[in-house]
Amino acid sequence: MQYQIVENSPIAPGVFLLDLAGDTSAVKAPGQFAQLQIPGFYLRRPISICDWDESGMTLIYKAVGQGTEALSRMQPGDTLDALNGLGNGYDVTRCGNHPLVIGGGVGIPPLYALTKALIAAGREPAVILGFNKAEEIFLLEEFEDLGVPVSVTTADGSFGQKGFVTDAMKEKDERYVFACGPLPMLKAVCKKSACPTGQYSLEERMACGFGACMGCTIQTKNGPKRVCKDGPVFRKEELTW
């Protein structure tokens, strides 16, 4: 599927917001991702979907390597080939009325559409966003504009509460958790949460992104699972942490 770049601009150091116009009918749930073909690179790059409507979608990515750096130099008007609506995404139907949405760094973007979906489903989510420092904060206003309580933690204390996202959780926090972020953060949240279930979105290096190559397999309590196809969202009960 072809997409046209509407906007591709930095919103924090090394972090870019990419607005794409095109067919989003394949996107079914928050937490799904797109596989972008960046000109000059063989493998596609998986990027989570921050938000979408019928005419296009917003992705937020960090330029971490040659591929995403090349992507960051692409201009409005350029076209991108993408496979869309990949992965399972979050399930907002089974989470109680007061879920906790927890994101760290570039794990935060898919939680924006998730929070909107939770509100639309009549839930009252609370959001915790973790960053390293104040200058790296992005999407905070957008989350606040949704009218939900948002707590921010920074590792160096330059904004919000000093510490990690787990420091903004309650002791024996029984709220249902939706999380996305770096693996150490996910493990810490999973350990601290007193809720026996929850949905955690994982990340792996991928080739295909649609379940064919077995490049992103992780071990779970239910056997080997593909992060791209069986995930990226996994239930706490399945995780081996």
Binding site: L43, E204, R205, C213
Partner: peptide
């Protein structure tokens, strides 16, 4: 067989590496 630990995939010029 579970196969190898991840990362199992890497980009290469005009191709890719796998160690599934």
């Amino acid at each position: 067989r579970f196969g190898n630990p991840t990362p199992r995939i890497a980009e290469a010029p005009a191709g890719m590496l796998n160690a599934v």
